[in-house]
Simulated scan of single mutants.
Amino acid sequence: MVSLPFLLLAGVLVVATSFALAWPLRAQRGLFAGIVVAVPVFALSLYSLVGTPAGLEPAQRETPRTLAEAIARLEADLERDPRQAEGWRLLGRAYREEERAEDARDAFARAAKLAPEDVGAQLEYAESRAQADPRSHFDEEAIAILEGVLRDDPDQERARLFLGIARRQAGRDAEAAEIWEPLLPGLGPEAAAGLREQIDLARQAGGLPPLDRSGADAPAAAATEGVRVHVALDPEFAARVRLDPRASVFVIARIPGGPPMPVAAQKRSVAELPLRLTLGDGDSPMPTQKLSELSEVEILARISSSGSATPQEGDIASKAVRVALPSSDIVELTLGADH
C-alpha cells in the first residue's frame, strides 16, 4: 500500500518541481535550455513505496497546508521506515525546492545507496553534490558516478552534460568538448546553438579549432518545434526597481480558460533577462498533456522572488499572450509594464 504522506507531498511538489530543470550550475542554465528532460511527475513514481499503518490515521489524511508541513510528514514516515529509496529522492527534491542544498544532498545519498542500479537516483545524487558545493563544482565522488553511468550507457544525456561541465570546471576543456558533441544531434535548434557555442569555447580553450558548421543551421529556423518566446523587462520598470538577479523567472504555456496547471514551463532567473527560449513537449509537467497536441495556448512570464512555482502576492507577471498553434512567430513578453 502506498504511504499517504508520500502522496500528499507529491501533490504539493509536482507543480513546483516540474518547473525546475535538473541543473547544477545556475550560470549555465540559460545556455543549455532544453537539454535536460523535464522532471517526471512525482506521483507516478510512488507506486513502489511501502505504506505504513500511520498513514491511515485521520490526521494523516488531511492535506498539508504548507510545504514545510508536508516535508515534516515525509520525514516522520521515513524515520519509521528508512528503506524507501523513492521516499528519500522525493525528500531530496523537497529540500532542493527549499534551497536546503546540504540536506538535499544527504537525502539523495540515502536514495543512491538504497538503489545502486537506479541511474536516476545516481544522477540526482551526483547533481546534488555539485549544488551543495560552495563553488557549484562536481567533486571526485560525483565525477566517479557520472563516469560510471556513461560507461554503462553512453547515450545517457544528463550524465554526458554534467560530466562535460565537470571537465570544463577542471580545466580539461578539450575533453569537455568531446563529451558534449554527441548531444548535438538530439537537440532542437535553439538548444543546439547554445551548446555549440559552449563547445567552441571549450575547443578554443583546449587549443582546437571550432566545430565545422557547414549545413548545421540550414533548416533550423523553419523546423523549430514548440513556441519561441522572448522575455524582457520593461525599461522604465528596470530603471527604477532593483530586482534580485537570483529571483526566479517562470515562463509557462497554459490552456486558455483551463486549469492552472501549465502544459509547458521553464524556470530561469532574473540575471538571464532578456532571454529567448522555446517551450516544447519536453517542458511539459504532465506526460498525458503535450503542447504539440493543442490548437491554442496562453503564454506568460512571472518573476517570483520567493522561488515558488505557485503564484503569490508581490509576484511580477507579464500580460498573457494567446497563441494559435503551430506558430512560427516569436511571442514577446514584457515584465513590469504595469508596475
Rank of each mutant, 00 (worst) to 15 (best):
M1C: 08
L13G: 08
T17A: 05
F19R: 15
L21W: 08
W23D: 15
P24W: 04
P24A: 12
A27P: 04
A27T: 10
R29N: 07
G30N: 12
I35L: 15
V37W: 04
F42E: 14
F42T: 11
A43M: 14
L44E: 15
S48Q: 07
S48I: 10
P53L: 04
P53F: 07
G55Q: 09
L56N: 04
E57I: 03
Q60H: 08
Q60I: 03
R61P: 00
R61M: 07
R61S: 12
R61K: 13
E62C: 09
P64K: 09
A72G: 01
R73V: 00
E79M: 00
R83A: 12
W88P: 02
R89Q: 11
L90K: 04
G92Y: 11
E102N: 02
D103G: 03
R105G: 05
R105V: 05
F108D: 03
A109S: 11
A111L: 00
A112C: 07
L114F: 11
L114G: 10
L114K: 11
E117Y: 05
D118P: 09
V119Y: 01
Q122E: 10
Y125L: 15
R129S: 05
R129H: 08
A130M: 01
P134R: 02
D139Q: 05
E141W: 01
E147D: 12
E147G: 08
R151V: 14
D155E: 13
E157V: 07
E157M: 06
R158I: 04
R160H: 02
G171M: 04
G171E: 01
R172D: 07
D173P: 02
A174L: 11
E175N: 11
E178F: 06
E181N: 08
L183Y: 05
L183Q: 11
L184P: 12
G186S: 13
G186W: 05
L187G: 08
P189S: 14
E190Q: 14
A192V: 05
G194E: 02
I199T: 09
L201Y: 13
R203F: 14
Q204S: 13
Q204G: 03
L208Q: 15
P210V: 09
D212Y: 11
A220M: 08
A223M: 09
T224I: 14
G226T: 04
V227A: 05
R228A: 10
H230L: 03
V231F: 02
D234K: 02
P235A: 06
A238Q: 04
A239Y: 00
V241A: 05
R242G: 10
R242W: 00
R246W: 05
A247N: 01
V251P: 03
P262I: 09
K267W: 09
L277Q: 15
T278K: 03
L279G: 12
G282R: 14
G282K: 15
G282A: 12
M286V: 14
M286G: 06
Q289L: 15
K290G: 00
L291R: 03
E293G: 14
L294W: 01
S295N: 06
V297T: 10
I299M: 10
I299K: 01
A301Y: 01
R302Q: 09
T310Y: 15
D315T: 03
D315V: 07
K319Q: 12
V321L: 04
A324T: 13
L325V: 06
L325C: 02
S327Y: 05
I330Y: 01
I330P: 01
V331C: 05
E332N: 10
T334Q: 07
L335W: 06
G336Q: 00
A337M: 04
